[in-house]
């Protein structure tokens, strides 16, 4: 079901709203790796990530009428659905806040080892970007984006004052954006 041609974003949205299965197949082929990457990063578990990805594509198919083009791009909308579904699953797995903090703590320790970049995706230059971010910059971005942590939780996990969390995040993202220009 590989698509030999590409659609513009508005053609994609129109096709989805018309329940065109060929367009949906194209959407899946084009975006499922990125969305699956998000679910995996959040959950750290392939079986849970599979369930989330299935749920996400069913939501996209069923709720495309609720997508409002004036409020943002289609990919942003799909990413938000994926992040929210994955983080909800993560939270329902870790009932207590303590448990969640514990998990984050464990994740933080993962960062002290080698960068876990899958060799098959590294042609995209991910490791080049990651190795030039400091450990704290990588962690602060990932805790917020992939683990849905609040400013208070980040302040606790990284042991930095609450008032500086946003400043650190701003610096981390500015650094990330500079590095992405080099990829």
């Amino acid at each position: 079901m590989e698509s030999a041609f590409t659609y513009t974003e508005s053609e994609l949205v129109q096709g989805l709203k018309a329940k065109d299965q060929k367009v949906f197949g194209y959407l899946y082929d084009r975006y499922s790796p990125a969305l699956y990457g998000v679910a995996l990063k959040v959950l750290n578990d392939e079986s849970n990530a599979n369930d989330v990805l299935q749920e996400v594509f069913l939501k996209i198919w069923r709720n495309i009428d609720r997508y409002d083009e004036s409020k943002g791009r289609l990919f942003t909308w799909m990413l938000n659905i994926t992040r929210n579904s994955a983080i909800d699953t993560l939270r329902s797995k870790a009932h207590k806040m303590d448990q969640k903090i514990q998990d984050i703590g464990d994740d933080v320790h993962l960062y002290t080892g080698n960068l876990t970049v899958h060799p098959s995706v590294d042609h995209l230059g991910l490791s080049k970007v990651l190795e030039k971010l400091t450990k704290e910059q990588r962690i602060i971005i990932d805790l917020a984006y992939y683990k849905g942590c609040t400013q208070e939780e980040i302040s606790k996990v990284l042991e930095i004052p609450l008032g500086t969390v946003k400043t650190r995040m701003r610096n981390a993202i500015i650094q990330l954006r500079n590095l992405l220009k080099l990829v």
Binding site: A34, V38, K41, A49, V121, L126, I141, V183
Partner: peptide, 9 residues
Amino acid sequence: YVTLQSKTP
């Protein structure tokens, strides 16, 4: 950045 971390399902 997110897309850099893609993985085929």
